[in-house]
Amino acid sequence: MINLKSLHKSYKTGATSLHVLKGINLDIEKGELVAIMGSSGSGKSTLLNILGMLDVADEGSYYLDDVLIENLNEKKAAKYRNLFLGFVFQSFNLINYKNALENVALPLYYQGMSRKERQKQAMEYLDSVSLKPWATHLPSELSGGQKQRVAIARAMASKPKVLLADEPTGALDSTTSYEIMGLIQKINNEGKTILVVTHEDDIAKMCKRIVKLKDGVIVEDKKIKQIIVK
């Protein structure tokens, strides 16, 4: 599903150049649930940005579902993001003046789906995260866990090939965190490829594979026995 070959990325800050990614090679199969770990400065955010087509690598290749991602202009990146990727953020990033249903329907709007159809589909996705009764509530009327579930439903609504979750449990207490991880596992079990960026060991252990980054290189890449959330 994802194939990275000797990916390099540096940031120029004035005269000095900061080499952030120093040759990343990574293969992720369809249906995997991968935790990407690393301390700050390890390059995990940069890697996620490149995977999310929010940034481009200086060197190396990036294949997503056998499509070479290169020469991205803004328009193309927007289209690919919409078709290939679903994003889940630490701070949920729901649009605060839109209710749960409208938030979930938004990616479908950008796919050009009719209003009626997207409302119907959005409702199905809300139902799949058991928030159907909350459809007309604004984000401010929802708890943190509920917000993240809306965000997951929104990420899933565009039927992405890969779900990118950036610290999805970072703003939640441990009970709610497990609940969200349970939901992610459920979606994964339905066949979706998911990448979770986290720095919490217990969250990482709920994934099927852990990739550890340090100073811009992968220092560890192992499959683990997944801890299933009940």
């Binding site: 999310g52 803004e74 328009k75 927007a78 993001r81 994003f87 990033n93 649009i95 950008y110």
Partner: peptide, 11 residues
């Protein structure tokens, strides 16, 4: 930013 992440083109 959210809209862009969800597939809104700059245009």
């Amino acid at each position: 930013g959210i809209r862009k992440a969800l597939g809104a083109s700059p245009k």
